[in-house]
Design a protein around this nucleic acid. Structure first.
Length: 200
DNA sequence: CGGCCGATCAGCT
DNA sequence: GCTGATCGGCCGA
């Protein structure tokens, strides 16, 4: 049993936090008190107002991305493509909208509960190998947007075991449109060779 | 395995 | 009216 990550862990820039999240464990305690958890194996950093690929580019602030402006350790969950949710961990200083997108998990606990809500995923490694999939599997949606990962009993991240540099890969972020120079910056980190990474 | 496409809505022009 | 930090079904090689 390992402890919950605290405020100071999240109070760094997105490019510093992102690789440190690899190997940690995202925990969701659902309405029935059932724990669903997964080891973080793929993340992306969104650096803030200067990052053209970020929802907060240029200081953009709307109802959707409001939680990006909250304190470090806030969950930023947004709705996209008319049907999927994606979860970010807000980081840096409060008021500066930086965040790390959680892209893939290795399912560890509550796998039956995950299967129940994602019946089409045949193999365990297909339950959480994408940002929309992991939110669906863990039951993370609109109601979880803005939760404080440092305090809330329903959603938090445990220390787990950080993955060392040798076992980490790094590449450009996935799924961006034309974000200029920002499209190609290597701001996606993943655990090398892990079967649950969304793309090799 | 890779490419195309539809689902469906918030935000922007 | 178009695009998107996506997914899964269907198609062809």
């Amino acid at each position: 049993m390992s402890g919950r990550l605290g405020r100071e862990f999240y109070a760094v820039g997105a490019a510093a936090l992102a690789p440190r999240l690899i190997g940690r464990v995202l925990v969701r305690v659902d309405d029935h008190g059932v724990r669903r958890a997964g080891r973080i194996v793929e993340v992306e950093a969104y650096l803030g107002v200067k990052d053209r690929a970020s929802h907060a580019f240029g200081g953009r602030r709307t109802a959707r991305n409001e939680s990006m402006y909250g304190p470090p350790g806030t969950a930023y969950v947004y709705f996209t493509y008319g049907m999927h949710y994606c979860m970010n961990v807000v980081c840096g200083r409060e008021g500066e909208p930086a965040a790390v997108l959680l892209r893939a998990l290795e399912p560890l606990e509550g796998i039956e509960a995950m299967r129940a809500v994602r019946p089409r995923a045949r193999r365990d490694e297909d339950l959480c190998n994408g940002p929309g999939k992991l939110c669906a599997a863990l039951g993370i949606g609109r109601a979880e947007n803005g939760l404080d990962l440092c305090e809330d009993p329903r959603l938090f991240i445990e220390e787990g075991a950080a993955v060392g540099t040798r076992r980490r890969g790094r590449r450009p972020r996935i799924g961006l449109g034309e974000a200029g120079e920002w499209k190609h910056k290597p701001l996606c980190w993943f655990e090398r060779g892990h079967r649950c990474v969304s793309r090799g």
